[in-house]
Each structure stands twice: as structure tokens, then as C-alpha cells.
């Protein structure tokens, strides 16, 4: 007994050293990235593992920023092969990638995700504009040409046609990709044209109570707004679809969040979903090309694709073909692509 224990203690560090050598080539694809893309990507990996002879890729849900950080950390085999993102790679991130030797990246767009503002199903339907939503959540708002701490406590303070109810919005915390998108698509868009901000984007969220940071788990927000009829929740479209018996969505700028409206771009609070491929790994990791091919196939992301069933909002036909072509050719992502 004692001897085996000592043997193990010696064996462990040896095993570690051996592992370093074994990392030259891999037979499991490693994927990291956005928690929004995670359900779709893991659906594909599961299908990939079940229907091919390759082993199932390992996916970690690290968030878009966290994923790109790991992805761009280097070109070695101990770095991920693919990272998912619910926003486009930033020029600064691409630069980090380049500096660390990750020079050949291909960008793939798989579809859209809508961000909804939902509330209890028994409430009166609610129609909001992005400006009203912005005035409800901003830290400082313009009044008589000056920026003052947000005075609005009730929706009817913002617009007398809105219900005479307290403003309570449960939303994702600052670390979340959904929050990034909300800030960009609602707050930036609304504040740029608003007087008092001098044309600059304003994305500070108020801290005095009406906005409640509610954790990364969207199910918690869903649960809480089904119990509190005054509260609104901000989260991804697929959670609305799954809870259609308990929740309804507010229209934003008069547009309802339906798959059609999100895909066509009519619904204003929608973002594209991406994944990025590290092309230098393609011949060292078995199955990587086949995985990408499966993900980009019509069977997955097409109009009647499997991912539609779990809430992915499809790319329009023409766009899909273009993206499929550029991914199949492994078009290299350049800095100039991000500036447009």
C-alpha cells in the first residue's frame, strides 16, 4: 500500500511531462467562447460526435471576450482551435492574435440572436421605443439641456401613455455579452441622436435601483419576472420562445421580436453570432474541417436547419450562401475587414 502511494507520487509529475509531448497533435477539437452561441455549437458537436467517427469536440462556455482571449493567446496546440462569439472580433483582439502568431483566422457568421424585453403574459401588451428604454435605464438623462441623474421612477414619467408602474428591469451584468449588445443596440443607438450627449454614445447604466443586475443565468431572470408582474427582463430570444406560456415580449420601435423580423433586420435589438477558426490547426486536429463543414451546412444553419428548432435565427438566403462560400474557401480575416 505504502509503496504504491510513493510510486504514484512519482508517476504523477512524469505523466504531466509526457502530456506536454503528447500535445503536438490532437484528435479532439477544442472550442471556447460565447455562452449565447454555446447551445448551438454544442448541438453541432453532439451531432458531429454521434454521426461521424471523430470524437466529440470539447466546448467551454467562457463568454465571447474570454474565448477570444484564450484563442488569441498563441498558436500552440494547447490553445483552442475555434472560438464562438456573440459579437464581432474587435480590432484590438485581432491585433493581439496577430502579435501572438495567430495570423490565419477565418470568420464564420451562423445567424442572429434577438434580445428581447419581456414581461408577464397577463400584463397589458407593452410597446416601447429604444429612446424610452434608454431613458429608463441610463444613469444620467438630459433635462432642459443638462445632464441630470435619472429622475424617472415610473414608466409614466417618461411617456404618459406608458403604464403607471414602477420601472424595474432585470438584466444581464456587465460581464455578459448580452449586456454588451444591449448597450450597443439600445443605449448607443438611442443616445447618439439625443440632445445633451453631443452625439456621443452614452452607455452608463443607472445604479439607483430600477435596473437590477441579475446574473449570467437567463433562467433566473425568467423565473423572477414570472413572479413579479411589474418587472421587465432582458435576455436572449430563445428563452422567450421556451417560456411562451408565461411571458410576452414588448415591441421595440413598434416591431415584435419574431424570427422573421429579427432575420430581416426589422427588429432593432438583434446581433450576429460568429465563430472564428484557427486555420493553422486544421491539419493537426483531426475532424476540424469536417466540423466546420457540418456547422456551415444547410442542414444546421439553413432555412429548415436543425438549429432553428432550438432558437437560432437564420441568415437570409443570399447572405447564407455568401458566408458558406467564404468559410469553405477559408478566407483570411484582415484588419481592414473590421474597419468597414
Amino acid at each position: 500500500m505504502k509503496r504504491t502511494m510513493i510510486g504514484l507520487l512519482v508517476a504523477l509529475p512524469v505523466a504531466m511531462v509526457l502530456n506536454v509531448n503528447a500535445a503536438e497533435a490532437r484528435d479532439t477539437i477544442r472550442i471556447v467562447g460565447s455562452s449565447t452561441v454555446y447551445p448551438f455549437a454544442s448541438y453541432v458537436t453532439e451531432e458531429f460526435g454521434a454521426t461521424t467517427d471523430y470524437s466529440t469536440p470539447v466546448i467551454e462556455s467562457t463568454g465571447s471576450g474570454g474565448g477570444l482571449k484564450l484563442f488569441c493567446a498563441g498558436d500552440g496546440m494547447d490553445t483552442p482551435d475555434i472560438t464562438n462569439a456573440s459579437r464581432r472580433i474587435k480590432p484590438s483582439e485581432l491585433k493581439t492574435c496577430m502579435d501572438n502568431g495567430v495570423k490565419n483566422i477565418t470568420e464564420a457568421i451562423i445567424g442572429y440572436d434577438g434580445i428581447v424585453v419581456a414581461h408577464h403574459i397577463d400584463n397589458e401588451p407593452l410597446a416601447l421605443t429604444r429612446e424610452e428604454l434608454f431613458l429608463a435605464v441610463a444613469e444620467k438623462v438630459p433635462q432642459n439641456g443638462e445632464l441630470v441623474p435619472n429622475p424617472y421612477k415610473k414608466w409614466s414619467d417618461i411617456n404618459s401613455e406608458l403604464p403607471n408602474k414602477e420601472i424595474i428591469i432585470l438584466g444581464p451584468p456587465a460581464t455578459s455579452g448580452t449586456r454588451d449588445a444591449f448597450e450597443e443596440l439600445v443605449m448607443e443607438a438611442a443616445s447618439e441622436d439625443m440632445e445633451g450627449y453631443d452625439g456621443e454614445a452614452y452607455t452608463n447604466v443607472r445604479q439607483d435601483g430600477p435596473w437590477v443586475d441579475s446574473g449570467e443565468n437567463d433562467n433566473l431572470i425568467v423565473q423572477r419576472i414570472t413572479r413579479n408582474r411589474d418587472a421587465l427582463g432582458v435576455f436572449g430570444y430563445s428563452f422567450l420562445e421556451e417560456n411562451a406560456d408565461k411571458l410576452q415580449a414588448a415591441t421595440i420601435d413598434g416591431v415584435e421580436p419574431t424570427p422573421e423580423n429579427i432575420s430581416s433586420g426589422d427588429y432593432p435589438v438583434a446581433r450576429s453570432l460568429f465563430f472564428y477558426i484557427k486555420n493553422s490547426h486544421a491539419d493537426k486536429v483531426s475532424g476540424m474541417d469536417e466540423y466546420v463543414e457540418m456547422f456551415m451546412s444547410d442542414k444546421m444553419i439553413g432555412q429548415r436547419g436543425l438549429l432553428k428548432r432550438i432558437g437560432l435565427i437564420n441568415l437570409p438566403e443570399s447572405m447564407l450562401e455568401k458566408v458558406q462560400k467564404s468559410v469553405a474557401e477559408r478566407e483570411k480575416l484582415k484588419m481592414s475587414d473590421l474597419e468597414s
Binding site: 479532439t28 454544442s42 433562467n219 428563452f239
Partner: peptide, 27 residues
């Protein structure tokens, strides 16, 4: 997301509480 049970100590694996955590976040 690791659907296969590990066979050796160097296989990727997930554990019970991690699995519960993952499911709790599914739509």
C-alpha cells in the same frame, strides 16, 4: 460540454455539480 465519460486520467471530463450548473442554464 463533454458528453463522453472519461476513460483515462488525461481525458476531458465534467463532474456532477458542473453538469447540474450547465443544465440549470439551458433554455
Amino acid at each position: 460540454y463533454i458528453p463522453n465519460a472519461p476513460e483515462t486520467f488525461t481525458d476531458a471530463a465534467t463532474v456532477l455539480p458542473a453538469q447540474i450548473y450547465t443544465w440549470a442554464g439551458e433554455p
